[in-house]
């Protein structure tokens, strides 16, 4: 490291030159996610949107069971931690009892698409006026890399050590396409956070989702296809390559439903 003092940088570190800063909608707590994981970036985009909309004091978030169980440690607004899979039920009640608050859930694939399938489908079908952020990395990360409902065919996990065999273990579930088919969803979109361009698109989508809630449009559902380098047993770089080659063909990025209308075939 070069021995530099602040003095050297004083003309450069100025408000005009600032391109990056911490959002006060995130806490100072160090993220507990593995290096290379996408959760931190997804959290940050969410926090930036909430800051930019000026709704920190009106936002109530719900953390799931899974790697993001401790999301409330990092996000600086009121949050509840839900039982495994039940976040959309919590969100339903909170939003109906506090209709002037912004309510969102943040859930992983095991939480949202396996144990919480009923709560997901029914909250979406009722058209609850909430935002659902669904982070899909095709694996149970926190419990040590077991097969998830979204695990791809042939993919090795600790409970499919020889690869997921569809005939025995079932097929991966595209729950995002499933909820897009329901009348209660207004906006359904799939994103990633592995490249700056994708991060910017995700942020735009989150903004749309919260603006929809402001106008009582129903469910806005955003999937973030993410990596799990620890669970996939790859380096972060390799896991992102693997994700592009294998996850994206099965979980294609982009809008699925906009303004209550399907914009591509399911």
């Amino acid at each position: 490291m070069a021995d530099v003092t602040l003095d050297v940088w004083k003309d450069i570190i100025t408000p005009e030159n600032q391109v990056y800063r911490r959002t006060p909608v995130m806490t100072m707590k160090e993220l507990s996610y593995c290096p290379g994981c996408g959760h931190g970036t997804a959290h940050r985009m969410l926090a930036e949107v909430i800051e930019e909309m000026g709704i920190q004091s009106e936002t109530i978030g719900i953390a799931p069971v899974g790697c993001s169980v401790l999301a409330y440690e990092f996000l600086n607004f009121d949050m509840q931690q839900a039982a495994h899979g039940r976040a959309p039920a919590l969100a339903t009640a909170i939003k109906r009892l506090w209709p002037n608050r912004y309510v969102f859930t943040y859930q992983g694939d095991g939480d949202l698409a396996a144990i919480g399938t009923a709560e997901t489908i029914h909250a979406c079908n009722r058209g609850e006026n909430i935002v659902i952020i669904f982070v899909n990395n095709g694996i149970y990360g926190m419990t040590g890399g077991q097969m998830a409902p979204t695990t791809l065919p042939g993919m090795k996990t600790s409970t499919s050590p020889y690869g997921r065999e569809a005939i025995l273990m079932g097929n991966p579930l595209r729950i995002t396409e499933l909820v897009a088919a329901l009348p209660g969803t207004y906006y359904v979109s799939r994103h990633s956070v592995h490249k700056p361009g994708n991060v910017r698109k995700l942020k735009k989508a989150i903004r749309i989702a919260f603006e929809n809630q402001k106008e009582n449009k129903g469910v806005s559902f955003i999937e973030v296809v993410s990596n799990c380098n620890s669970g996939w047993k790859m380096t972060p770089v390799k896991s992102n390559e693997w994700m592009e080659e294998n996850m994206f063909p099965f979980y294609p990025l982009g809008d699925i439903k906009v303004d209550g209308k399907l914009v591509r075939e399911l």
Partner: peptide, 25 residues
């Protein structure tokens, strides 16, 4: 607010959310 939930599991978790937000549920 009165809502018929999709299951008892959902009902009790709706209570969790509502109670967590200070409401009499």
């Amino acid at each position: 607010v009165v809502l018929q939930a999709e299951s008892e599991t959902a009902s009790i978790n709706m209570l969790y959310g509502g109670a967590g937000a200070g409401k009499r549920v």
